[in-house]
């Protein structure tokens, strides 16, 4: 039983390794002293100072805007890709398609960023679009890479779904489109929400892709933070970072809470339905059995 102790110890060690630095960062964001390493008492002044920094606030708004668009587009695109990967078993170029969907997960960001920038430059030369790089080009870059995450999350869910419900709907004459929107989508809704929030967070965090494909005047929050951080640790950045941490924790907790609730209510509904059918078929075996199979 010795190894159990070891792996438990590693778990505790690993989790504190992951969380301690963030905790320290948050604590120091309340530091009244201007020197980041000396503790000078509690204070909110760095947070208050953020509101006056109009350049920073502008980049926050821009980043949030891009993250919203990205979440919507990545969920749509990623779900389509996941659907194709799990439900359309045979078509030309399926292997290539599978590779294209999963490759953005591991591709170094500098490569993706550089290649997308070159694409936008070439497109601007050939068809005159995009004339200016900015929100739209960042959105395209983020959507491409977030869709891969959505596809992985959603296809895991699609794979464990009970196919018989979709098949039953089709047998009863529902068109594939209708089945998808009325049956499949509600059943995978929690993973769509999770994928959407994940894309939102990933888009909000990205520095490298945005640096490559953004143009002058479209600085995002991570770019702003990066240029400040390069020069060293600053109390204002501690405050920004803590706020981002807070926002992400809230989003993560919401994803977890809602998916857990959805799962619980789904299980309860199945249980209730089974109990009901069981008790009813017990009372009137013949009639209900027909109803249950239909």
């Amino acid at each position: 039983m010795k190894r159990f102790g070891f792996s438990k110890f590693m778990l505790v060690f690993g989790l504190s390794f992951i969380y301690l630095p963030m905790l320290i960062l948050v604590i120091y964001s309340f530091n009244a002293s201007k020197l980041v390493t000396v503790w000078g008492g509690w204070s909110f002044k760095w947070y208050a100072g953020l509101l006056d920094n109009s350049q920073l606030m502008g980049s926050v708004v821009r980043s949030l805007e891009i993250a919203c668009y990205t979440a919507i587009a990545a969920v749509a695109l990623g779900t389509l890709a996941a659907f194709v990967l799990t439900r359309v078993t045979r078509f030309k170029g399926r292997t290539l398609f599978g590779g294209l969907v999963t490759a953005p997960l591991v591709m170094p960001e500098v490569i993706t960023g550089l290649s997308l920038l070159l694409l936008f430059v070439a497109m601007a030369q050939m068809i005159g679009w995009p004339m200016e790089r900015g929100i739209v080009t960042i959105w395209i870059a983020h959507t491409t890479f977030c869709a891969a995450y959505v596809a992985v999350v959603v296809s895991a869910r699609l794979r464990e779904l009970d196919l018989s419900i979709e098949e039953a709907a089709m047998d009863l004459g529902a068109k594939p489109f209708k089945v998808f929107f009325l049956i499949t989508i509600p059943m995978i809704a929690p993973s769509l929400a999770a994928g959407g929030m994940m894309s939102f967070a990933l888009s909000l965090d990205d520095l490298v892709l945005a640096s490559f494909v953004s143009g002058p005047g479209s600085t995002t929050l991570p770019m702003e933070v990066f240029s400040a951080v390069r020069l060293g640790v600053k109390p204002e950045i501690n405050a920004v970072a803590s706020l981002i941490l807070l926002a992400v924790s809230i989003v993560t907790f919401m994803v977890w809470y809602f998916s857990r609730r959805a799962e619980a209510s789904r299980k309860r509904a199945i249980q209730e339905a089974m109990d009901q059918t069981a008790s009813e078929s017990w009372q009137q075996p013949k009639k209900q059995m027909v109803g249950a199979t239909a």
């Binding site: 989790l15 992951i18 969380y19 630095p21 963030m22 320290i24 960062l25 120091y28 980041v36 390493t37 994940m198 967070a201 990933l202 909000l204 965090d205 520095l207 991570p222 933070v225 990066f226 951080v229 060293g232 640790v233 950045i237 501690n238 970072a241 981002i244 941490l245 992400v248 924790s249 989003v251 993560t252 977890w256």
Partner: peptide, 21 residues
């Protein structure tokens, strides 16, 4: 959830936290 939550947070910020430490 505890393991995955940090990956949703900007790598920039997590690295920055280490700079101070």
């Amino acid at each position: 959830l505890l393991i995955m939550m940090p990956t949703w947070t900007a790598i920039l910020i997590r690295v920055y936290a280490w700079m101070g430490i």
